[in-house]
C-alpha cells in the first residue's frame, strides 16, 4: 500500500455560480459553489479545483469570497485557477485560503511568472494548467498544441515540450492537463495525451476533459498513467458520487483514500 490516486471534482465558477459548459461554450447552471464543495468533501473528494471563468475582471472579487468561505469549511487541498496573471493575484488567492493556483494563459504571456511564483511560494502551490488540442492529421503520429484564452488562441507550442520545460527549470509542481477535444464530450480522457505528458515529466499529472462514466476515471489512471483524475459534470448533476467513483477505482485495482476507515470509534 502507498500513495492513493486522487479524484478531484472541478467547479467552473462564473460570477459566483457553478456552471458547466460543453467544449468551453454552452453554459449550464449547476448551483452554489460552497454547497457543492461541501457535498464533494463529505463524499470523499481528495481535492477540489475551482476555475474562475468569469469574463469580466471587475467580478473577480466574487471568486475570492467563494474561496474564503470554502476554505473555512473544507479541509482538503483547494486549487484555484482562471484569471491568475501575476504574483499579486497568486498571493490574493493563497491569502483567501487556496493551497495551489493553476496558471494557464499567463504562463505563455509572461514566461517568467511560473518561475517567479514557484520561487516565491514554493513549487507545491504552482500548478501549470494546459489546454491541449490534437493538431496532427489522421495519418500522422499524435501531436498536441497548447491553446490559451479558454481555448480560443492557438500558440504553436508543443504540449509535451511545454510540460517538460515548465516543470523542469521553471518549477511548476503539478500539471492540470485538459483535452479540449474531449472536454464536455463524455467520451473519456484523451488517454494518449495524458500518457505522453505523464511519462515525460517527473511531477504529478491531473487528467481532465471528457469523463462520462466511472470507468473513464479508472482508465485515466491505468491507461493514461495519471496521478489524479478530474471531472465536473458527472458529479454536478448527481449522476455519480465521489464515493461511487472510488468504489469503481478500487474494483479496478487502483489504490484510493477510503473515507470510512479514517477514524476509529
Amino acid at each position: 500500500m502507498g500513495l492513493a490516486k486522487r479524484i478531484i471534482p472541478c467547479l467552473d465558477v462564473d460570477r459566483g455560480r457553478v456552471v458547466k459548459g460543453v467544449k468551453f461554450v454552452g453554459i449550464r447552471d449547476a448551483g452554489d459553489p460552497i454547497e457543492i464543495a461541501r457535498r464533494y468533501d463529505e463524499q470523499g473528494a481528495d481535492e477540489l479545483v475551482f476555475l474562475d471563468i468569469t469574463a469580466s475582471s471587475d467580478q473577480r472579487d466574487t471568486m475570492i469570497h467563494v474561496v474564503e468561505q470554502v476554505a473555512a469549511q473544507v479541509f482538503i487541498p483547494l486549487t484555484v485557477g482562471g484569471g491568475i496573471r501575476s504574483v499579486a493575484d497568486i498571493r490574493r488567492m493563497l491569502n483567501a485560503g487556496a493551497d495551489k493556483v493553476a496558471i494557464n494563459t499567463a504562463a505563455i504571456q509572461n514566461p517568467g511568472l511560473v518561475k517567479e511564483a514557484a520561487a516565491r511560494f514554493g513549487s507545491q502551490c504552482i500548478v501549470l494548467a494546459i489546454d491541449a488540442k490534437r493538431v496532427n492529421n489522421e495519418d500522422e503520429p499524435p501531436r498536441w498544441e497548447v491553446f490559451t484564452h479558454g481555448g480560443r488562441h492557438r500558440t504553436g507550442i508543443d504540449v509535451v515540450q511545454w510540460a517538460r520545460q515548465m516543470t523542469g527549470q521553471e518549477g511548476a509542481g503539478e500539471i492540470l492537463l485538459t483535452s479540449m477535444d474531449r472536454d464536455g464530450t463524455r467520451d473519456g480522457f484523451d488517454l494518449a495525451l495524458t500518457r505522453a505528458v505523464s511519462e515525460a515529466v517527473s511531477v504529478p499529472v491531473i487528467a481532465s476533459g471528457g469523463v462520462g462514466n466511472l470507468d473513464h476515471l479508472a482508465d485515466g489512471v491505468t491507461l493514461g498513467k495519471a496521478d489524479a483524475v478530474l471531472a465536473a459534470s458527472i458529479f454536478h448533476f448527481c449522476e455519480y458520487t465521489v464515493a461511487q467513483a472510488k468504489q469503481r477505482m478500487l474494483e479496478r485495482g487502483i489504490e484510493v483514500r477510503e473515507m470510512n476507515v479514517a477514524l476509529r470509534a
Binding site: R6, S202, P204
Partner: peptide, 17 residues
C-alpha cells in the same frame, strides 16, 4: 512502483498511509 513498474513522481503529492 512495485506493482505497475510506473515511475514514481516527485514531489510525493497526495494521500498516503
Amino acid at each position: 512502483e512495485a506493482q505497475t513498474g510506473d515511475m514514481l513522481k516527485i514531489p510525493h503529492m497526495g494521500w498516503n498511509q
